[in-house]
Nucleic acid binder design. Structure first.
Lengths: 235, 235
DNA sequence: AACTTGACACGAACGCTGTTCGTTTCTAGA
DNA sequence: TCTAGAAACGAACAGCGTTCGTGTCAAGTT
């Protein structure tokens, strides 16, 4: 079976798993590729995940990967699919639907944050991946059980998933830039606070006055705030 | 003056403009670089904006660009800065603050959409760029005039700006993938609808049942919905 | 008027990327 | 035992961002 056939098969309802013949002493499997890739991302970040780096970690050359994966984009999809597969979706409970929905978002966020920068792959992914669809199906179940209109539910889910990915991407970018010693990037919160307060007060009256609020809060605080904002807007 | 000095100068309050001596018949200026880059993005997309492609459009070699720009990241920042500079910010009016805020978001979205994929640069940008700060200052003014607490206002602005960028990024990715004839990517709305309805109903009961709602709405409808969702959540 | 200075332009190269071609290797089924 | 064919892989290609060393030419100084 071709690797490209495998990809299209992943987007069909029933991807039949099957044991294949093996050649090597430790023949490479797609699972191995995905797991190794996640390991690289976890320790070195998504930018370090190149086909060469990955193939080296698997003790082979770049060309060998293309027997298991169509593209880097395809690999990205596999990675996100693996992350989505890890999420446990709650049984919809109309009494606690807000907390349930927030819980799913936070679980997804935690998965993303565990693999810095991987959310970039999520943002570029096809909307028909089965594991990703499983997550949105679960979120849809929660919202419908809560009595939200299907149209509003669908759009809210998209908005939430988009925000989660974007939020994690922003965090990973900030983290990478900060530790690379970028001059332009503020080193820490006090640095950013200082830059905002020293802006010309004439052109930036509110920014300078409320610099404290602008720089306040942990990333989790901001995430929690925004998710609540969107969920509250539903009612 | 070095290009790196110029960059740090752009992050300081008062970037003094100055006429410089010229060498070439048509010496390259930063303005020229930025405008040419925007032209390339507008017609060929952000992915086509490489240092080589840009330098070729300016009738020179890649190395020449680095006299005016520190990095590609620096160029990205200039591009987003230019876009932000084009936005006209309204005088805060407590009576229509929701519409005003939505208007700013839509104007920013339209700028992003005019240059497909450029929002990727926005997501990776330093939060201290002067033109970008001008925009958030304007949004902050609207929210504060409306009586929103500074802390909530600040976080809401970040959430909105993040969503606008992410939304446009998602649109550009979808557009590029669709016109590249990607097999995995749904060609159009009916294609996506068909894929969702043919999912196994046992595992995806809600997705299959409400596939129509899931695929309904223009991108602008979804954008409008989400922005309203966040703004309404404020009250 | 000749000279020094230094910013800008630029050709060539480096190390890296994703991807492909052609070949070799080795197992599963006939 | 033999063969078909999938997997593995070495080598290469075109392209990327970036840097180095050098060339060039106008402005300011002597």
């Amino acid at each position: 079976m071709n690797a490209k056939e495998r990809r299209t098969a992943r987007h069909r309802p029933a991807p039949a798993e099957e044991t294949r013949p093996r050649r090597r002493r430790d023949p490479i499997t797609v699972d191995q590729v995905v797991e190794t890739a996640l390991g690289i991302i976890a320790t070195e970040g998504y930018d370090a995940l190149t086909m060469r780096r990955l193939s080296a970690a698997l003790d082979t050359g770049p060309a060998s990967l293309y027997a298991h994966v169509v593209n880097k984009a395809d690999l990205d999809e596999l990675l996100i699919g693996r992350l989505c597969a890890r999420l446990t979706l709650p049984d919809p409970d109309p009494a606690t639907w807000r907390d349930q929905l927030r819980g799913v978002c936070e679980a997804l966020r935690d998965q993303y944050l565990q693999y810095p920068g991987i959310s970039r792959a999520a943002l570029a992914m096809a909307p028909t991946d089965l594991e990703a669809l499983r997550v949105s199906e679960g979120m849809l179940a929660i919202l419908l059980a809560a009595g939200i209109a299907p149209q509003r539910a669908a759009w809210t889910i998209d908005a939430l998933l988009l925000y989660v990915a974007a939020h994690c991407l922003e965090l990973s970018v900030a983290h990478r830039r900060a530790e690379d010693g970028d001059e332009v990037w503020p080193a820490d919160r006090t640095d950013l606070l200082h830059r905002l307060t020293t802006l010309p007060a004439a052109a930036f009256p509110h920014t300078t006055r409320h610099a404290a609020e602008l720089t306040a809060g942990t990333p989790h605080d901001r995430f929690d705030f925004t998710v609540r904002l969107m969920i509250n807007g539903l009612a």
